[in-house]
Amino acid sequence: MTIAATLPASPDQPRTLPGDLAIWFFIFAELLVFGVFFLAYAFARARNVELFDASQLQLDRISGAINTALLISSSYFVVRAVDRIRHGASRACAGWLVAAMALGGAFLVLKLTEFAGKFAAGITMSTNTFFMFYIGLGFFHFMHVVLGMIILGWVAHKAWRGGYSAADHAGVETGASYWHMVDLVWIVLFPLIYVMH
């Protein structure tokens, strides 16, 4: 198995990232995109501090903070869901997942309210570089929350119908890993765009 050092492809190899390795390729790609965007924001800001600081004042920091709390809590609920399925409690697992989705839904509502306010004020991605990042990255992340909720919903549905067990629940971990990634990205995004100046 010396070749596998460059390309771990054989199923018999020990590999214990939670969930399916396939989702981790997706997660790494997503993190790469977000990471590059975060650094792009930071460098663009350093070249135009006044504009960024002035534009940042128009953001609703409290709304962003509440959204952070919502995503962190939903991530925690997902941790509880994974814990339940490890004990074979399918229904409880599904319950925690639905609770996590509810918080994700609340995040979306709050975020939409924020965006609606900005659009009403005539702000778009073309307004200036700061708002390009605020709306562009925010919308990009928003879509990730939607996708994460779809994945969680799918997993919850399968869990509710008893599709997972204490021994076999890779699907739950796969969905959970993706959701934590969405949370992790927001944990960096919030202070970067809403707070630091």
């Binding site: 020990p14 590999r15 214990t16 990232l17 939670p18 991530s75 925690y76 997902v78 941790v79 994974v82 971990e173 890993s177 934590h180 990634m181 949370d183 992790l184």
Partner: peptide, 9 residues
Amino acid sequence: FMGLRHATS
């Protein structure tokens, strides 16, 4: 949360 602390990958 992600559980990477205990991952051996």
